[in-house]
Structure formats: C-alpha cells, structure tokens
Design a binder for these strands. Sequence first.
DNA 1: CGCGATTTGTGCACGTCTTCACAAGCGCCT
DNA 2: AGGCGCTTGTGAAGACGTGCACAAATCGCG
Lengths: 256, 256
Amino acid sequence: MSQHRHPGAPGRAGAVPALPDLPEATVARLPEYLRALHNLAESGHETVSSEGLASAAGVNSAKLRKDLSHLGSYGTRGVGYDVALLIEQIEYVLGLTHCRAVALVGVGNLGHALAGYDGFASRGFRIAALLDADRARVGEVINGLVVQHVDDLARVAAEESISIGVIATPASAAQPVADQLVAVGVTSILNFAPCVLSVPEGVDVRKVDLAIELQILSFHEHRKASLTALPATGGSALTALPGGLAATDTQEAIGT
Amino acid sequence: MSQHRHPGAPGRAGAVPALPDLPEATVARLPEYLRALHNLAESGHETVSSEGLASAAGVNSAKLRKDLSHLGSYGTRGVGYDVALLIEQIEYVLGLTHCRAVALVGVGNLGHALAGYDGFASRGFRIAALLDADRARVGEVINGLVVQHVDDLARVAAEESISIGVIATPASAAQPVADQLVAVGVTSILNFAPCVLSVPEGVDVRKVDLAIELQILSFHEHRKASLTALPATGGSALTALPGGLAATDTQEAIGT
DNA sequence: CGCGATTTGTGCACGTCTTCACAAGCGCCT
DNA sequence: AGGCGCTTGTGAAGACGTGCACAAATCGCG
C-alpha cells in the first residue's frame, strides 16, 4: 500500500475506473469534504492536514482519514493532502467530472426557490428542464427556463440526457411523477414531497423533508427542557440507572 | 412489561415526564411514522398493524416495532396500534403538543419558499418572524409577515418565545447569524447555508444542504454507470472478491 | 370457557460505523 | 547521511443500528 499512484479520473486509460464501493456514511460526507476543499483552495492553501480539513468539514480527523483512505492513498505522510489533487479525486468518485442535467418537477413555492438556487450550478449540476402538471404554469419563465408540461417529459428527456429528477410537487402528485420519471429512464430521484415513493429496484431515491428536520429539533428542545426541569434527581436518573425507569415500571411490579 | 399504561402526555400528573433517551435513528424516524399515522387517521383507520404502518412509512416492520417499543407499550397484541393514541404519544415525545415558534433568517430565494411553505404550519410550527440583514428587504411583507432587520432579533425574541432558528442566508452570513441566535437564547438551529456552524455546547444544529443530496445521488449514478460498463467481469469483481481490486493494486506489486 | 389465529415486544446475532492508538513513511535540518 | 518531528493509513475494539425469529399476550369464536 504505497507508491503514490493516481488511479482515478486523471490518467486512467479507459480501463476499469476501479470504483471502490464506499460505505454509505463515507459517501454522504465526501461532498462536505469537497466543499471545504474548495474553500481552502480559494484561500490559497495548496496542502492541508487531516486535522485541518476535518475541522473545516466539521468532523473528527480519524474519521476523515478513514474516509479518504477508502479512495486510495492521496496523502503524504508528514505533509498532508494536496488540495487540488484531492478535489480532483473526490469529484471523480462522485461522478462530478461532467455536468449533470437535472429535471425539476413542480414549480410551486419550493420549486421556484430550487430553480433559482445557484448552489446547484456552482457544484456541477444544471437544471435542464422545469416541469409542472398545472397548465396555467406552463410557459412561465423562471431563471431563463420555460416551464413545460409534465406530460412532455418523454420529449424533454430525449432532448437532454436527464441524470437526476427532483420532485417538488405536493405529496399527492409525487408518486405519479416518480413513475413518469422512472418511465423515461431516470434512476436517481430527489424527493421533497412528504411521502414515501415506491420505485423499482435500481432506482435511488433520497428524501428531504423540511418539516421532519424541525420535528427532530423539536424533540431535542423538548428533551433539553425536561432535563432542566429536573434539578437534582433528573440529571442522573435518566442516564440509565438500574432504577431509572422505576417511575413507570413500578406499575408492572404491581401488576405481577 | 405489560399493563397497558399511558405515561406520556395525557394523564401525567406533573411528575417526571419520563422521556426515555431514544436512539437518534429512532428519533429521526418518528416524524415519518407520525405523518403516516395522520394519513391513516384521515382515511378512517382506527388501528393499524406494525406491518401496515411500516409499509406506509417505508420501513421494515421489525424496525418499526422496536422504535415504538422505546416509547413504551402502546400496541395491543393480536390487534395492532391505536392510531389516535399513537399520534398523541409520538407528538408528545417530539414536543409537538404545543405550537413552536420559528424565526427564519434570510428571505432570499430559499427563505421566501420556506416562509410560504405550508407544511410547517400543518405540523405544529409557526413562523413567528422573518429577518434579513439587507435593509432593502426590511419592511417587505411575505405571507402576512413583515420582514424585520436581523439586528432586531433580541426584541423579536423577547416578544415571541422563539424555539427554533432557521438560517437561510448565504454561507458567509451564516456564522454571525448563528451567533446572534445563540445570543438570544435559541438552542436549536436548522441551517440551510452550505457551511459548518460552530456553536456552544447544548445548542443543536441540523444541516440541510440541497447540493449535497444531489452529489450523493450523482455518486450512485456514477457507480451504476460504471457497473453496466462491465458486462462480464464487473458484476462480480466489485462485490468484494479477493482479487477485485487487483486492477489498481497490481501497480503496488510492481512498485515493490 | 378454552382454543386458535394474530400481532406485539424483545433477546440475539450480525453488520456497519466510529474511535483510539500506533506503526510506517515522508521531509527537513544538521 | 542520519535522525527527528510530523502526519498519514490502518488494525482492533467498542458503540450503534438492523433484522430475524419466537415467546407472550390479546381477541374472537365455537
């Protein structure tokens, strides 16, 4: 395991790209590393240590090193990682070496915002089509793109090579839209509608539900509040004492 | 472990709320169960089996039962779960029994969409204030709320009891905004800006980055594409065969 | 009243992820 | 050239999450 080789995007000879099947948890963090690396590159850093990159990405350095080690050996002991090289590598692994076309379905409140979000373009994604089921919206121009009817999806997909579909419709419309996307060959879907989608095997769906995020935060607020409400006994009682749950479980003792 | 007791919200006598510290993974799924339960309740179901609820929530039934068992025993063997009771319980645990006030900072593209998103109000959250650093935006009315300057945060927080802060600003503004939120006592933050926030201990931050979700999907697209590109050898080679990585590791053998 | 069908709750084993701790490797300085 | 400090890459251990499979419990029916 040495001999600093670069088997990734640059220099591969059309052979097997050698995509190691990374742990999901690692994949989920790579984009964060990538963002941090771009920041570092802009501020003139040429190399960065695992400690430095880890803190910029908000993770611990051991985790970062293990994550990067899954891509191969791109660091130099005693020095750190070459920022530019690492960017290249991560972008290759993530499949960002070429711009990916995104079809956005549903130009309501959220869809509008997504259509105008410049964070996509700056990170290798191009919104290639806006679609909506509401004929009243068809023809509207958003951010330089004309809204088309969702029934024209097949034609649109034929013109542009759609890589990813984004669903920003109400929940009731999401499943049919997903079916249409799958029908035209889309195998990756980002779903903002609050519902579960059923898709055939081989199609990846990621779900983002803004209300769920708030509810998770709400839980922690609730927990924190209930903690401070127990000045003396509370703090220790719920850190898993043997009798910690006695307050509720005593009833069981009575029952038996 | 029996004696169908209801120690949760309804009927507790001001004593310890007995909030068990749930596994994070469970907490993250509870909102999904809650949404599915509301759907079931609307369609007239009074009870639901773990199997039924699990499929409605998109998880497997064993996981669902284990998740719910952490809240206590609210099912009836041979019957299933009482939908209304379970809703009550989950809402209590998540701290949704009273409406939570949310302060939204940054009314740009995304902020606008969030301000108009009705999925918040319908699930126990009330956007209590809109704030922005841009004085040109102050005074603008969005969805019945007047945009105020972010420097007025202290006053706003005094009027409304802000429970959660949402950051929808550009990355460069996010950290100062977070500091201001923390300064007025906010201990839960939902961050849409693509950057890591540093906050004091005790403050919870959840991050939603739309571009990251796309990048994760991009990875899977890339992987799927590289799979289909290897008709014969590929399929098996990268499912962790001993020699699967030989294509790249042979270089090492040459090196040594 | 008892029995069978049904469904929950959970012990257990397995896999994944995280963290620690340290050997191996690299560059620099003398 | 040799040694020293620094940093990566990785084995091993522990924590955490998942899924199976089954005992316990409940309802309905004869």
